[in-house]
Simulated scan of single mutants.
Amino acid sequence: MAFGVYIHVPFCATRCGYCDFNTYTPSETTSSYDAYLASLERELELAHTRPADTVFIGGGTPSLLGAEGLGRVLDMVREHVGLNPGAEVTTESNPESTSPAYFDGLLEAGFTRVSLGMQSASTPVLRVLDRRHTPGRAVAAAKEALAAGFEHVNLDMIYGTPTETDDDVRATLDAILAAGVDHVSAYSLIVEDGTAMARKIRRGELPAPSEDAYADRYELIADTLEGAGYDWYEVSNWAKTGGECRHNLLYWTGGQWWGAGPGAHGFVDGERFVNVKRPERYNDMLAAGELPVAGREEIGAEERHFEDIMLGLRLRRGVPREWIAPGAWGVVDKHARAGLLTVGERVAVTDRGRLLADGIITDILAAE
């Protein structure tokens, strides 16, 4: 089974209104980048890992560390964890903090994949999301990464933003196709409690997202990308042949990974753990020679089965039929008759079933 390393970079230049990730702007933390990097190296020295098949650096905004800082992170992984031959090494990047020299530096450091947060090609939508980059910058960054020699470049988009129109989505898709990337992730906007966007919706300053709009936009995205030669391999992810993200597949197929950095989650040898969130506390614990773990949880067979079904049925390949408990076959057959599931050696959602995948999965797990 593949083993991965996830590294969380908790810094952002500004806070987006929809974001509830564990991130900190300069006014929200006293931790410097250098202090974080020193602590991260101590954590990787103490980590109980094995050589990695995939590495994913996320955030936050990892590109704020620059190519030199990210190269230093990857050197830490090589020294203290190890990389297996052919390992996939990915970093997320904000288009505004990238440049041709940045991508050249990443490639030289050993990165094999870049994921860029585009969100939308519409200025009004970006404004509602409190994104600071200009609409064309994400495409320009993607082209710079490809020109540097990256074979695998991903663009993330968000759909269902309040005030967004179908034309906004079409413009975003047109820009993505013009960029020539081999991977696209499309996520419906989730308005999380405690975010600035949630407060604006509660005060009536923005309309609430529409479930009907989500469905219509998803179908538009799927039709456009698949018509352009991208295959869906997970409900929210499309790739050209060979462009699938191996690290994310590790999550979705029951793999194990070490999570490093403030607030990072990991899953190793049947145990899930989560690190302390605040960078200052993270630094202090590692300075004292402690792993910065805030909590641990043993994952039993029942919970693991639940997660295997919940994640596996979002994949195009689905799950082995023997994973489905006897009590759920009536529900499976009902959805198969409705054209939402295929049943053979594996059980999988159909193209039509993708839109209802979460409900189908809930029905199956409830029946079990």
Rank of each mutant, 00 (worst) to 15 (best):
A101Q: 14
F103T: 02
N84P: 03
A148G: 10
S93I: 01
S115Q: 11
T98S: 06
A145Y: 06
S99H: 04
L74E: 07
V73C: 15
P162Q: 12
L116F: 07
N94W: 00
S120R: 01
E164C: 02
L129F: 04
K143A: 12
R127I: 09
F111Y: 12
G82P: 00
R137C: 04
E68R: 15
L107M: 13
T163P: 02
P95Y: 01
T161R: 03
E108C: 13
K143H: 09
R78Q: 14
P135A: 05
S97L: 03
G105F: 00
L129A: 06
A141T: 14
H152M: 07
D130W: 07
V128M: 02
A145R: 00
E108G: 15
Y159D: 03
E144R: 03
A148S: 12
H133F: 07
R131M: 05
N94Q: 09
A140I: 14
E144C: 06
G160V: 07
N94V: 12
M76P: 11
Y159E: 01
G110E: 11
N84L: 14
E88V: 06
L146W: 07
E151H: 11
S120H: 05
A109V: 13
H80Y: 14
E92C: 02
N84E: 10
P95G: 02
L107R: 15
D156F: 05
L65M: 10
V125R: 05
E164G: 04
V114W: 01
P95V: 06
E88A: 10
R127L: 11
F150D: 11
A109D: 09
E68A: 15
F111C: 13
L65T: 11
L155A: 08
V125Y: 02
T91W: 03
F111L: 07
A147N: 11
S115Y: 03
Q119A: 00
A109Q: 13
Y102S: 10
G69Y: 05
S97E: 07
